[in-house]
């Protein structure tokens, strides 16, 4: 009889949880510990808050317009960022974290256009040179931030570790992004609730997942309300201002990384986000600021909201 185990921890600034079925309690505990260690490894490596992280080393090189050689995992992440940048017409941009200097979602202050204009010249993936394995910055004061996709990648890494440990039934949740290791031992899918972006504590939709991943993103995470206008945390790297359009997007894909970047790109695309999601041929669900629900998963929306 498989032993069920749930293990909660904090990583990457979010609550994380592992649910798995193991052969024995000891097997489960060992697997959970290795999965957590993998997530913490990525946090240490890519955190922008730690001086000893690789991100910090890259940004020290960026500060003085230098260059740095990176390992193969980071190289693949940079290649991925490049592809996402191309596919989003420059909207998915890992150099756009600099805009946080103008947009402080904790203080709730709306920056002036002048503040933003000072930052924009230092933003743009196209302004640096990436030749695997060497990353070169040609202008001072740029900054790289892997925060936009490393958590989703972490969920995939965690699932890979789980499979290596012989875990075949379980689920990994990193701050709301979910990667299924495998269905319940009897084959039933996991039932995952998507949070309502406007009504706290309410489930917008419930989705069955036997495999793959689901990621969600929306302006309910961090936003500023000013003069009746909501400013979400998803910033357009071309203008420096929050995008308007969709307030919540969820995408189901084989890998959490794909699901996560699809939600981010859809939000960044604003009003055309739903068209772009349609072109992906992945299951998705979105809500716009008027509360209208779109997407191939719209039938899963709880009847109270439908």
């Amino acid at each position: 009889m498989p032993h069920f185990l749930s293990h909660a921890f904090r990583a990457m600034g979010s609550p994380c949880c592992i649910h798995l079925y193991a052969e024995s309690p000891a097997h489960g505990a060992e697997a959970a510990q290795k999965i957590e260690a993998e997530v913490l490894r990525l946090e240490q490596k890519y955190s922008r808050y730690r001086d000893d992280s690789l991100t910090a080393a890259i940004n020290r090189a960026a500060l003085e317009a230098g260059s740095i050689e990176v390992d193969s995992e980071t190289a693949a992440l940079l290649d991925y960022a490049h592809t996402a940048w191309l596919q989003s017409d420059g909207l998915f941009d890992i150099t756009s974290g600099l805009l946080r200097r103008a947009w402080n979602f904790r203080t709730g202050k709306i920056p002036s256009q002048k503040e933003i204009d000072l930052l924009l010249p230092h933003i743009g993936w196209g302004k640096l040179t990436w030749h695997n394995p060497k990353l070169s910055f040609t202008r001072r004061g740029m900054e790289l931030d892997f925060g936009g996709y490393v958590k989703e990648y972490g969920a995939d890494c965690a699932a890979a570790v789980a499979l290596q440990q012989g875990i075949q039934h379980g689920l990994i949740e990193l701050g709301g992004d979910i990667r299924v290791i495998g269905p319940h031992p009897d084959g039933r899918p996991w039932s995952v609730g998507i949070r309502h972006p406007r009504i706290a504590g309410q489930v917008l939709a419930q989705i069955d997942l036997a495999s793959g991943a689901i990621a969600s993103s929306g302006d309910y995470e961090r936003c500023i309300e000013h003069n009746g206008q909501r400013y979400g945390h998803v910033l357009n790297p071309h203008t420096g201002w929050p995008v308007q359009g969709l307030i919540s997007v969820s995408v189901v894909a084989d890998h959490c990384l794909l699901a996560g970047s699809a939600t981010t790109i859809a939000l960044l695309r604003g009003d055309t986000g739903t068209d772009w999601l349609d072109s992906l041929v992945l299951p998705w669900l979105a809500m716009d600021m008027h509360g209208t629900v779109y997407g191939t998963l719209a039938h899963s929306v709880s009847s109270a909201d439908a």
């Binding site: 693949a76 996402a84 191309l86 794909l258």
Partner: peptide
């Protein structure tokens, strides 16, 4: 551009955790 999903998946396949699977 080709299908964005195909392009992103192909790039994701270069990541060890994903290519392993």
């Amino acid at each position: 551009k080709c299908n964005p999903l195909a392009a992103l998946t192909t790039a994701a396949l270069a990541l060890p955790a994903i290519s392993h699977l």
